[in-house]
């Protein structure tokens, strides 16, 4: 049972990776690990994205024109970091995604009857 839930949650997280990343980028440019870390902290460890998911998602979002990237020196004695910035197109996409997300959640409420007080 737990295995099935884990599998389902993995798919769910995968589906919401882009939405999470774009949302975080609204408050400013961020590098890969910063995005992963901030997401974990903000969601109290509920949404944890791994390297195998985060970086490929960033790359595909970049080729889709949703984000842009640039390298920046750290000044901390470690190699430069790759920062990501949300594009205008990315912002539009994020708004659409959020609207659809809300619509979906409302629709699911309808499916299990919460909207009608049938609990």
């Amino acid at each position: 049972m737990q295995e099935d839930i884990d599998k389902w949650l993995k798919e769910l997280k995968k589906g919401s990776t882009k939405l999470s990343i774009l949302s975080l980028l609204r408050s400013g440019d961020k590098y890969g690990y910063e995005l992963i870390h901030e997401l974990e902290v903000r969601t109290g460890g509920v949404i944890v994205i791994k390297e195998s998911n985060a970086y490929p998602a960033l790359h595909s979002m970049e080729s889709d024109g949703l984000v842009e990237s640039y390298w920046k020196e750290t000044g901390e004695g470690i190699p430069p970091r790759k920062y990501y910035r949300i594009t205008t197109r990315g912002q539009g996409f994020l708004e659409d995604m959020r609207r659809e997300w809300k619509r979906y959640v409302n629709a699911m409420d309808g499916v299990w009857g919460e909207g009608n007080g049938n609990q």
């Binding site: 590098y31 890969g32 690990y33 870390h37 390297e51 970086y55 390298w71 430069p80 790759k82």
Partner: peptide
């Protein structure tokens, strides 16, 4: 090359923390 640089940076950041 880009992936190499990015992953290197990622592991540096994690190790630094």
């Amino acid at each position: 090359k880009e992936i190499t640089r990015e992953l290197t940076s990622n592991f540096y950041d994690r190790s630094m923390t």
